[in-house]
């Protein structure tokens, strides 16, 4: 488990077809079991960093290895095998609203069962057990047979987390997981992510916009600015000046969750 959960970026560079630079040559080592928060203003390359780990956004040059294996640059069996071990959580949940919660979570098992079984919705009992445990870990097992679209936003994000957990992943990538949630739900979801990291030892990368959340929940904080790594340190040691450097300006109330809630 431990080896599979390490991520190493070497000169990772992403240039989009329109010329925008996503990552401008990033070198970064993430150790197994770490809880890393990535901060930066929008367009700084946070999403690109996460999406390059499971190949959703292919690198232009450089390399990324996950558990020592390089991330393939083309869609295919190799990349699907790698993705099977990397769970992803999205800002907009990305669950299929017309399907039941259970089916959405079982989607996390697609790469672990024979293709025909997945195709016909005939899941082995063991996989259904895994899905149920994933739901229990985020405390919504009681909603297993509800239509996913009928749940509240926070509950839908829990379905997204359960789907990632059902993969039994070594790594979880959470791309702005709380950006569409209210403050109370935000803290619940962040606590869930931290607890999962501690209990299961899953390496976790979280993109966050809010500075106070980053400082409160992160172990290690990584700052990105225009696709470059401009900060890498522990959450305890990060200072106001560091944030100023990352954002290119003084942080204001809009960068703080609890402040913006108050205002």
């Amino acid at each position: 488990m431990t080896d599979k959960a390490a991520i190493r970026f070497q000169g990772a560079r992403v240039v989009y077809p329109n010329g925008a630079v996503g990552l401008a040559g990033v070198d970064l080592d993430i150790k197994p079991g770490e809880f890393v928060v990535v901060v930066g203003s929008s367009g700084a390359g946070k999403s690109t960093l996460l999406r390059s780990v499971n190949g959703l956004t292919p690198l232009t040059s450089g390399s990324i290895t996950v558990g020592g294996q390089p991330v393939p640059k083309k869609e295919g069996r190799e990349l699907r095998r790698l993705r099977a071990g990397v769970g992803m959580i999205f800002q907009d949940f990305r669950i299929t609203r017309r399907l039941s919660v259970m089916t959405n979570v079982l989607v996390g098992r697609v790469a672990h069962v024979p293709g025909w079984r997945a195709m016909l919705n005939l899941w082995p009992a063991a996989d259904r057990e895994i899905a149920f445990r994933a739901l229990e870990r985020v405390s919504i097992a009681d909603k297993a047979w509800v239509r996913a679209g009928d749940l509240s936003g926070g509950q839908q994000q829990r379905v997204g987390i359960a789907r990632a957990l059902a993969q039994e992943p070594a790594i979880i990538l959470a791309d702005e997981p709380v950006a569409s949630l209210d403050p109370v739900t935000t803290h619940q979801i962040m606590r869930d992510l931290v607890r999962i990291n501690q209990e299961l030892g899953i390496t976790t990368l979280v993109n966050l916009h809010f500075l106070d959340l980053a400082r409160r929940y992160g172990q290690r904080i990584i700052g990105l600015k225009a696709g470059e790594l401009v900060y890498d340190g522990t959450a305890d040691s990060v200072t106001q000046a560091d944030f100023k450097n990352i954002y290119g300006r003084d942080p204001d109330a809009g960068d703080l969750l609890d402040e913006s809630e108050a205002s």
Binding site: R80, M88, R94, V107, A118, Q167
Partner: peptide, 14 residues
């Protein structure tokens, strides 16, 4: 979104 989510979980296009 869900299409990408299935692929991110290692699912094929089918």
């Amino acid at each position: 979104g869900p299409v990408e989510a299935v692929q991110a979980a290692g699912g094929s296009r089918l």
